[in-house]
Design a binder for these strands. Structure first.
Length: 438
DNA sequence: ACCAATGATTCCTC
DNA sequence: GAGGAATCATTGGT
């Protein structure tokens, strides 16, 4: 009401001379303008127009449209409009203009910097997950580390995509809304005093609102990145189990090399390749062979009894494999028995297994093992193999072990474990040295 | 929720 | 630097 009073006061001083009479085309009861210098009449006239402007919103749409049109066409409209604009600018905008000068937001800058540093905003770091995965594949060795890395990158890319999509949406919405408001204000500016400066101010307000929404988005994105980082880069949080297949491969190697469960670098590489894991502690957060063997050795040593069943299981598996190999060898070389079995192709873990068993069983049984409780059928088989292979103890023992029933099998396993313990206790350091040499 | 199993880390020794 | 020992922290089964 104060503004209205001021406006009325200001308007009363406006000179409104030189306008011809206008008859409202839509029957608007426009006040009659008297010729001459009748001040009271003009005041009345202006007061009436203002009253119409003030009450226009109380009318029905049709009535308002009609009045609006009438007012737009009124001869005094341009003069009134410019005066109202001037008053508005002088009374309101000068104060608001000061408030528009926002200092650069430190928090926003921090968020922007972080998003840039993490590769979410700005150019994508490292070319994205697809490129990383392709590079790993091209290298021919998809280690767990690279999987983790690409996994991390994939998730980061996902965040990045969401961030950019949302940002784009916001910008689009902001532009659409701004255009809409500008059009509305321009349209309204034909009726009410809206200066271009005021439109600009409105646009700024809209932009600021959208900036605050964008800031929320940036904040959420930063949080997501932090969570992702902590999940992927904090080692202890990130423990994953080996696959069943990988555990089996490692266990097979471990139990078949109980006398020396220290795989060489080559063996580690082979195992790593087989299991699709890393060889050793290349970096944090990896599933690696060295860790596995370290844990296995210490836990096995601490509680042999607990691992016995597992040892039996893997030894049996190994025996079957070895027997198959022997059977194949016998079949393929009836008249030609190699003096040194188990010198299989390098990198193959099945034959070295047999080697360990050979040592164990020879030590336990020697010739006496032939008198074990084996069926007649099996005895004949063993005899045949023995004869053919000219007393090759390995072949005999392998056949016994795999075909000789549970009793023999158990005995062998127990001895194997016993012997391995002895060997481990006494020859660990020397084994290491040997390994170092090779 | 509890607990055993287990992958990873840290510290120490050699 | 590799391995042993202790420990942490997560996973997965109950």
């Amino acid at each position: 009401m104060e503004d209205q009073g001021r406006m009325m006061q200001a308007l009363s001083a406006v000179t409104l001379a030189g306008h011809s009479a206008h008859t409202g085309a839509v029957g608007l009861p426009l006040p009659h303008i008297h010729d001459g210098a009748d001040g009271d009449g003009r005041k009345q006239d202006i007061g009436s127009i203002l009253h119409q402007i003030m009450t226009i919103t109380d009318q029905s749409l049709d009535e308002a449209q009609a009045k609006k049109h009438g007012l737009n066409c009124h001869r005094m409209k341009p003069a009134l409009f410019s005066v109202l604009c001037e008053i508005k600018e002088k009374t309101g905008l000068s104060i608001r203009g000061v408030q528009e000068e926002d200092p650069p937001d430190a928090q926003l800058m921090r968020l922007d910097n972080m998003l840039l540093a993490e590769g979410v905003a700005g150019p994508e770091k490292g070319g994205g997950a697809a490129v990383a995965a392709a590079a790993a594949a091209a290298a021919g060795s998809i280690t767990d580390n690279s999987i983790e890395h690409s996994d991390y990158r994939a998730k980061l890319t996902q965040i990045r995509q969401i961030y950019h999509t949302e940002l784009e949406k916001y910008e689009q919405a902001c532009n659409e809304f701004t255009t809409h408001v500008m059009n509305l204000l321009r349209e309204q500016s034909r009726t009410r005093p809206i200066s271009p400066k005021e439109i600009e101010r409105m646009v700024n307000i809209i932009h600021r609102k959208f900036s605050s929404i964008q800031m929320q988005l940036k904040q959420s994105t930063c949080e997501a990145v932090m969570i992702l980082r902590s999940r992927f880069l904090d080692a202890r949080r990130k423990r994953r189990n080996f696959s069943k297949q990988a555990t089996e491969i490692l266990n097979e190697y471990f139990y078949s090399h109980l006398s020396n469960p220290y795989p060489s670098e080559e063996a580690k590489e082979e195992l790593a390749k087989k299991c699709s894991i890393t060889v050793s502690q290349v970096s944090r957060n990896t599933l690696d062979v060295s860790n596995w063997f370290g844990n296995k050795r210490i836990r096995y040593k601490k509680n042999i009894g607990k691992f016995q069943e597992e040892a039996n299981l893997y030894a049996a598996k190994t025996a079957v494999t070895a027997t198959q190999a022997v059977a194949a060898a016998v079949h393929n070389s009836q008249d030609n028995s190699p003096s040194t079995p188990n010198t299989g192709s390098p990198g193959s873990f099945s034959l070295p297994h047999s080697g360990d068993m050979f040592i164990s069983m020879q030590g336990l049984n020697g010739a006496s093992y032939q008198g074990a409780q084996v069926g007649a059928n099996m005895q004949s088989q063993v005899g045949a193999v023995y004869d053919k292979r000219s007393g090759n103890a390995f072949s005999i023992l392998m056949c016994l072990w795999s075909l000789g029933g549970f009793f023999e099998y158990k005995m062998c396993i127990h001895f194997q474990i016993f012997l391995d313990n002895v060997l481990q206790t006494n020859f660990t350091s020397s084994n290491k040295k040997v390994c170092n040499v090779t």
